[in-house]
Design a protein around this nucleic acid. Structure first.
Lengths: 301, 301
DNA sequence: TAAGGCTGTTGGAACGTTCCAACAAGTAGG
DNA sequence: CCTACTTGTTGGAACGTTCCAACAGCCTTA
């Protein structure tokens, strides 16, 4: 692979001059510049980002952690974040963890060793040490869907869970449902509890309390769309009709929710936009050498 | 961030000794080793992979390109590849391209500049220059689902498209269908054509020819499951009943295909395993400093 | 003409590792 | 006692950049 020095030799100038041409912030005589540019094209030179990173002490990479890439919500979040990162010149190191603590820690170590400039967390297990280990090394972190951050250094992009849950409960209530259940993810994500709390608060406002799925619930609110879809499958296999016998509503508004065969009632949250926004906050913080320390609610209309 | 030299100073040894302790291939006296290890723990030292990469001329990173992260097939492929890469100590730089040529080229440039050790391509646009630009720089490339490679340096992991298409046509034929259509992705992927050819070959064997969707087809084979699901949605919105009026079959066997509301007939292909296997081939080649030059068929049982 | 100001260009140090050649200190064999 | 060998340890060069201080010309201007 050709280096800056190869180009310099070919163009008959010093390596500094080639560097100046490439970076463009120090003026170079037109004639010299042309010669260097020709040499760059001839040798198909591409700057070595690794060497640049070492010198600049910035990897120009950000880490992205999601529990599960095959869940459309997280896939969209990752896609939005990845696209935004690339647009800003950052590479995206994407990892999925299945919400397993050891995997989360390995991901954290990998990020630290690779000196990523920032990390976006789409979801982690309850009690994960991942945010702390990154923050303690002064790596800015933004989490999506996390609730009140226990660490003020954390950046947070939250969907409006209480508002969404209120809307969902209101919708079901008006359809006449009085026995409502909430089902969360079996992997204990941090965000599960928050949605449940919003759900129960909305019920309480109507003088109701949540029931278990098996205890004659006439409607189920699921933690997210994928879970709702899985619940529909299970209920129907048990011989129940959805929504005639029991209603199921989701959360996330993944594209599949509007499919005619699913026709799932759901609360909207724009995962792509959340990913994009998370990267923007994280990169801004990284450039200014500070933590994000900022919380933002994504409205769910 | 602490460096090797900080650790050395703290432990009262030279940087070489610390390096020897970390790498473990040069013997270090037990007592010295303990002292160094304590210093490493005390300073929370994590080796700088960027510096290591520069010296070793290996980024320990692989690039992964897929058209669309929100398509479960590609999400699984990427997830399988990412998991395998991490297990081998490689970071995964994941990019989605929407099969847009400029995006593909940008991804290629990013990979070259970051000196990735290998690239896995899940799908690219027809006539893409991406494989060539990587191969010409001696970066090993494995493509999934590509057909006969026009470049012998390419590694290929193919699902058994002809076999799968034969099975699909056979299934539909036995159900009595005689007017069959094939619908491919609107983004012209390389693999689209191959599935269509397999489909038409299987038809020809039965003395049939493919018809268009609008020309009274009684069954449609889609290029993949997500497309099949979208087609079902469209047909049903047009007032047709699936499968009573028209049958739709998919390809990929994504988890959703077995959902009771979809109950999609599909040909199985194990995307996770394809991703895993692709990484294994690519990393082997990278370590031996050669191209993959190997084609492998993933049976679809 | 000497001093000063521009405009381009350059060598060298630094970033944080790895690895080789060299060396120090001790042990064993003659 | 000298040589040879073993075991640990070490300084320094290299990887490919960036960036600073220095410098070489050349043009003004007093």
């Amino acid at each position: 692979m050709t280096t800056l020095i190869d180009v310099a030799r070919k163009a008959g100038v010093s390596k500094s001059t080639v560097s100046n041409v490439i970076r463009g912030n120090i003026p170079v005589a037109k004639e010299t510049r042309d010669r260097v540019e020709r040499a760059i094209a001839d040798t198909r030179y591409h700057p070595n980002v690794i060497a640049r990173s070492l010198k600049a002490r910035s990897s120009m990479a950000i880490g992205i952690v999601v529990p599960d890439l095959t869940n459309p919500f997280y896939a969209e979040l990752a896609a939005g974040a990845e696209r935004a990162a690339n647009a800003l010149g950052y590479a995206a190191l994407i990892t999925h963890t299945d919400c397993a603590l050891p995997t989360e820690q390995e991901a954290g170590h990998a990020f630290i060793q690779r000196r990523v400039d920032a990390v976006i967390i789409g979801g982690i297990s309850r009690g994960s040490t991942l945010p702390a280990m990154l923050l303690d090394r002064d790596i800015p972190v933004v989490v999506a869907s996390f609730g009140e951050p226990e660490d003020p250094r954390l950046g947070v992009i939250d969907p409006d869970d209480p508002g969404a849950m209120e809307a969902i409960v209101s919708h079901l209530y008006e359809l006449g449902h009085r026995r409502l259940a909430f089902v969360s993810h079996h992997l204990l994500e941090q965000s599960g509890e928050r949605r449940r709390l919003g759900f129960e608060a909305a019920l309480a406002q109507r003088g109701l309390r949540s029931v278990k799925l098996g205890e004659g619930a006439t409607a189920v609110a699921a933690h997210n769309d994928m879970l709702a879809i899985a619940i529909i499958d299970r209920l129907e296999r048990q011989g129940l009709r959805v929504p005639e016998d029991i209603s199921v509503v989701g959360y996330d508004d993944i594209p599949l929710a509007s499919h005619r065969r699913m026709n799932l009632t759901t609360a909207h949250s724009d995962a792509v936009e959340m990913g994009r926004r998370a990267v923007q906050l994280a990169v801004d913080a990284a450039r200014e050498g500070r933590h994000v320390s900022h919380r933002e609610i994504q409205a769910s209309p």
